[in-house]
Nucleic acid binder design. Structure first.
Lengths: 190, 190
DNA sequence: ACATTGAGTGAACATCTGTACACAAATCAG
DNA sequence: CTGATTTGTGTACAGATGTTCACTCAATGT
């Protein structure tokens, strides 16, 4: 996992992975059919863990009678990112990276997130009469904003300076702008 | 340029580039000090052309007395993307790609775009009293949305199916949501 | 207790890689 | 035309790479 942190997955050799795992090259094939296979597995594992974390986060919020606001969700996400930096570097890097199969895997998972978020949104009083399509469009926008925040956070290696807070505040403002827009979107439609 | 279309830049060898250019490997060094150097040059060239196209687009709009609306700008951008597909595949791929120097170059150029857009926004009647910081935050959000549209357009190889229109419509809706939000943002601040 | 299986080994291969070096051709300035 | 500078060539080398094959070894279930 450390390997995949700062170089593109496509530029990593099977032998490097084997070396990193303390294993002879040929033994690699006992676990994965190819590098592509490894990549897809990595995506699925990372995403599974992330999904679990977010679900737990939402549960905790509910337990404290707190609403799952955008700020709260962003906070949970970013904490998870900090705890699993290498994985997210990998995900952000390979989302549009060089291997089609991996791109597809990430895209599928992100689409799932959007759908989930769209369902959450549909329960908000202000949005009850939105069409499913518009809900998903809004959800995708929110996911995009959050993903951009993650990418910015990881790309700046400033690690601990004020840049981190800056990114969080910017992202929160952007989310508010979108929510305000969503509040205005509905009326002109009906 | 065709080389860099679907594989990550970091996984491309100097020799492949030389081969693609019809040149012996050693001659590569007559033009670039390293692969990294090539990458940065590629970024700068692509961005220079894009900047020129957008400026001309805005000039044309002005000549036709049309406002540079978000829809118009998106249209110009996407047409340019279609005409220079390989370059944009490269840019989207390497924005968070494996080579730090290239990431930095792209990031710098994007930041420039945001600043330019922020200036344009500052001239809109509804936003005249926004703080420069908030203007830039909004501008970055718009750039993010447009960039996401570009990435989605290039990732789907559907090429000509309805997916293209779908992406454009989604993006337009997202932009409208943001603009609506921006219209509501200002009041609570003063 | 023993055969079956999953995981790791080691040698070998043909191929590709970056870069060094001395040399040739082409372009250009005066 | 001539001399200089830029661009390209050919050869060479040490090292890395993916994949094959036949093998050992330890764990497992019955």
């Amino acid at each position: 996992m450390g390997l995949v942190a700062d170089r593109s997955f496509g530029s990593i050799s099977l032998r490097e992975v084997a070396r990193g795992a303390g294993i002879v090259p040929t033994a690699f094939y006992r676990h994965f059919a190819s590098m592509e296979d490894l990549g897809v597995t990595l995506v699925e594992d990372s995403m599974r863990v992330l999904r679990r974390t977010l679900r737990e986060g939402r549960r905790d919020l509910a337990a404290r009678q707190a609403l799952p606001t955008a700020q709260n969700s962003l906070d949970i996400l970013l904490r998870h990112v900090r705890d699993n930096e290498a994985q997210f570097r990998f995900l952000v890097r390979e989302q549009h990276g060089g291997i089609a199969e991996i791109r597809r895997a990430i895209d599928t998972e992100l689409r799932l997130f959007s759908k989930e978020l769209a369902i959450d949104l549909s329960r908000l009083p202000d949005l009850v009469q939105w069409s499913p399509e518009d809900l998903e469009i809004a959800a995708e926008l929110i996911v995009t904003i959050m993903l951009t925040a993650v990418a910015d956070l990881l790309d700046g290696e400033y690690r601990g300076s004020g840049v981190e807070r800056e990114i969080v505040e910017r992202t929160e403002k952007q989310l508010v702008m979108v929510f305000l827009g969503m509040g205005r979107w509905s009326p002109p439609e009906r």
